[in-house]
């Protein structure tokens, strides 16, 4: 705890850029997801000396007087022996931040592109790293994996072995033939009543209007929501050379497409869709990130964390300003 507190007090200002970066293709050679996540977190910590989530996870340790009915297991016997006073020990590992990680396991996430890095692998490492990072900060992390229905639902906890459980769930292979974000998010909203942060990782190849209602529900419940869109570069640009029969990974429908001929039209449609998603996020106050599988993972993660911190600082500043103005108005001329 002491070290953590020292970190919190010692670091300040913008985090510096990571000094060591892993190429995703090299990273994929590591077999264990835990190893990958650990490698990235270690790399990030070289340039990041304080938690970007500092202030949210206030670790608290305190005593309160014993009252009849309290569990005697939590009575501080040493204090009782020394001072003859009955105090109840409050646990240190209570945390304020609950983070729900949600991963799309639909078959469209299997798309690998010419670089042979599947979106799902990239997303797994991204989430594993995030989980690892949060766990190091003693925050509670939960996980939801879904395709057209929820596959795994692990509530946020902070306890030994929980991280490993999350990593095992993340290893599950995609099997679904469709994506239905609405159902898992609604379930999430029903399950997790306590406010927290929801990080949703998917390719979001669905209509923005389908996302509106579940995201709005989450926001209404007070959750902070961040959407991370994982894409292969070719999905955005359609930079493929030869004409081919394109087969939909989810519906197995096929279509003959000449990429050269249809590239412009494709990019236009894709950009329109992405813009629609961004507008939706702006309207709902949701953090929106777009990462590509050819980017180093720690850079993507760093960008995500930095952006969150920036948003947070704006919010804090806004809050401070409003508080100051309220105080000035109250003090009067």
């Amino acid at each position: 705890m002491t070290n953590t507190m020292q970190d919190k007090t010692k670091t300040a200002g913008e985090p510096s850029a990571p000094r060591l970066s892993f190429d995703p293709a090299t990273l994929m050679k590591l077999k264990s997801l835990e190893l990958r996540a650990r490698a990235i977190v270690e790399g990030m910590s070289l340039g990041l000396h304080r938690s970007p989530f500092h202030g949210y996870s206030v670790e608290f340790s305190d005593y309160r007087p014993y009252s009849v009915g309290d569990d005697l297991r939590y009575l501080d016997w040493r204090l009782l022996a020394r001072m003859d006073r009955r105090y109840i020990k409050r646990f240190e590992d209570e945390t304020n931040l609950r983070c729900y990680l949600a991963l799309d396991l639909s078959r469209s996430m299997l798309y690998a592109g010419p670089r042979q890095i599947a979106k799902i692998d990239y997303a797994r490492i991204l989430l594993a790293t995030l989980a690892f990072f949060l766990a190091r900060q003693r925050d509670a992390v939960g996980l939801v994996t879904f395709d057209e229905q929820i596959r795994d639902l692990i509530p946020p906890r902070f306890r030994p072995g929980h991280l490993r459980r999350l990593l095992v769930a993340l290893e599950r292979n995609p099997a679904g033939t469709g994506t239905n974000i609405r159902a898992p998010l609604e379930r999430l909203a029903l399950t997790f009543r306590k406010r927290g942060m929801v990080v949703l990782v998917s390719d979001f190849l669905l209509s923005p209007e389908d996302l509106r209602r579940p995201l709005a529900t989450l926001r209404a419940l007070g959750h902070e929501v961040a959407l991370i869109r994982v894409l292969d570069r070719t999905e955005k640009t359609l930079e493929l050379e030869e004409p081919a029969i394109f087969v939909d990974l989810e519906s197995r429908r096929d279509l003959y497409v000449d990429p050269v001929a249809g590239q412009r039209d494709y990019r236009k449609r894709f950009a329109q869709h992405a813009a629609g998603l961004q507008i939706l996020c702006q309207e709902l106050g949701i953090d929106w990130h777009e990462v590509f599988t050819d980017e180093p993972l720690e850079r993507s993660l760093h960008r995500f964390i930095s952006r969150r911190r920036w948003i947070r600082s704006i919010a804090d500043n806004t809050h401070d300003l409003s508080m100051a103005s309220e105080f000035a108005e109250a003090a009067g001329p």
Partner: peptide
Amino acid sequence: SPQRRIDFSSLRFLQPSPPR
């Protein structure tokens, strides 16, 4: 006619091309 098949994430934004 081309016989190459590509598994693609979604055909949502693709338009069929006339066979070349």
